[in-house]
Computed example of a mutant assay.
Amino acid sequence: MRHSLMLALALCCAAANVYAEKADSSKPIELAADRGSLDQKQGINILEGNVVATQGTLSMRADKTIVTRDAQGNQTLQAFGNQAQFRQKLDGKNEYIEGQANRVDYTSVTNQVVLTGKARVKRGADLVTGEQITYNTVTEIYQVMGGSPAASGGTKGRVTVIIQPKPQDKP
């Protein structure tokens, strides 16, 4: 049985909305890997072996990535590996959001990131873990699911959320 927990939190419990670095989307994407297959006509790029992708403050590492772009310019990214990882600076703060999972899927149309398989998202000292984490990069709404009994060795899957207290104002 899978447990689902809808979290409408901005992981640091701040009242202000904090988003990923806005300038990143206007910067070029640099991809490096051991090998690649690029089909510009179909809009499909496959990179394998020590894949490193960077765009501004966003960096991602994976064993394999598949990046597609449709005629309207919408992009999808699938990253696979023994813990694909990403890190991105938050807009206007000297703080980063970091995540890892066995698979990471991103769709620009919906602004959804889905981390599957030992998923973990960390922002500052706050942490969310589960078998699958769905995160909207615009609304900052998380949905976290624990694993099924088969996926977690016969025990019920659990999610973990660690939220640090808000610093108190000093007199």
Results as ranks from 00 to 15, higher is better:
residue 24 D to G: 03
residue 25 S to Y: 02
residue 25 S to D: 15
residue 26 S to D: 15
residue 27 K to F: 10
residue 28 P to D: 08
residue 29 I to S: 06
residue 29 I to F: 01
residue 29 I to N: 00
residue 30 E to K: 15
residue 33 A to H: 00
residue 35 R to E: 09
residue 35 R to Q: 14
residue 39 D to H: 04
residue 42 Q to E: 14
residue 46 I to S: 07
residue 48 E to Y: 02
residue 49 G to S: 05
residue 49 G to W: 14
residue 50 N to I: 03
residue 50 N to S: 11
residue 50 N to E: 09
residue 51 V to F: 01
residue 51 V to L: 01
residue 54 T to Y: 04
residue 57 T to M: 01
residue 59 S to T: 10
residue 60 M to N: 04
residue 61 R to Y: 05
residue 63 D to R: 01
residue 66 I to C: 08
residue 69 R to G: 04
residue 70 D to K: 03
residue 71 A to T: 15
residue 73 G to L: 00
residue 73 G to T: 04
residue 73 G to C: 08
residue 73 G to H: 05
residue 76 T to H: 03
residue 77 L to K: 01
residue 78 Q to E: 13
residue 80 F to N: 11
residue 82 N to Q: 09
residue 82 N to M: 11
residue 83 Q to T: 10
residue 83 Q to S: 14
residue 84 A to C: 05
residue 84 A to F: 08
residue 86 F to I: 02
residue 87 R to E: 09
residue 90 L to I: 06
residue 92 G to N: 14
residue 92 G to S: 11
residue 92 G to Q: 11
residue 96 Y to S: 04
residue 97 I to G: 13
residue 98 E to P: 06
residue 100 Q to C: 12
residue 103 R to F: 08
residue 103 R to V: 12
residue 105 D to W: 15
residue 105 D to C: 12
residue 106 Y to N: 10
residue 106 Y to G: 14
residue 107 T to Q: 15
residue 107 T to G: 10
residue 107 T to L: 03
residue 108 S to P: 08
residue 112 Q to V: 02
residue 113 V to M: 07
residue 115 L to P: 11
residue 115 L to S: 09
residue 116 T to D: 13
residue 117 G to P: 08
residue 120 R to W: 08
residue 120 R to V: 07
residue 125 A to I: 12
residue 127 L to M: 14
residue 129 T to S: 01
residue 131 E to N: 15
residue 132 Q to V: 14
residue 132 Q to L: 03
residue 134 T to A: 15
residue 136 N to W: 07
residue 139 T to C: 02
residue 140 E to Y: 04
residue 143 Q to W: 08
residue 143 Q to N: 15
residue 145 M to S: 04
residue 145 M to W: 12
residue 148 S to R: 10
residue 149 P to K: 12
residue 150 A to Q: 09
residue 150 A to N: 09
residue 153 G to V: 04
residue 153 G to W: 12
residue 153 G to A: 07
residue 154 G to R: 05
residue 154 G to V: 09
residue 154 G to F: 07
residue 158 R to C: 00
residue 159 V to N: 00
residue 159 V to H: 01
residue 160 T to F: 12
